[in-house]
Amino acid sequence: MTTSVAVSPRPATGFIRVGEDAKPWITGFRCMDCGAVATEQTLACRRCTSRSPLQEFRASARGRVYSWTVVQRSYPGIAVPFVSVIVELEDHLTLKGTLRVADHDSVHSGMPVRLVFDDAGGALDPEGAPYVGYHFVPFTGDEK
């Protein structure tokens, strides 16, 4: 018998954080002077140039589609088609992501969506650890 050892997944992209309980979240940074938000901890606020430390926060998992496209041709080896979306989260953080939706014709600007964490397509890092990624799904209002 083998004993499975819990390996903490690694963020597949810079602004995913993984807690000690292996639960991930999206991290954002807010300027306390002007309120601008970003997924990157910059040296100063990129909007107002304030050097007051940015406040880190856990981003909302809900938002709306700001823009989108259905990608029919991508780099060689990338499975198509898929829906690429720019999402404005409830706390104004902007994320790019893939929207998993059966009916591509239903995608529209303003569409409510929910962020779901995933295994980043099953990719492993060079040491064999799994990644944690995310995608979006339509938000129907039924979810808790």
Binding site: R10, P11, A12, T13, G14, T69, V71, S74, Y75, I78, A79, V80, F82, S84, V85, I86, K96, G97, T98, A120, G121, A123, D125, Y131, G133, Y134, H135
Partner: peptide, 13 residues
């Protein structure tokens, strides 16, 4: 950094 983002996190083309 991390796995190639194309398709996983929308498209960068």
């Amino acid at each position: 950094e991390g796995p190639p983002p194309e398709g996983l996190f929308g498209s960068g083309t």
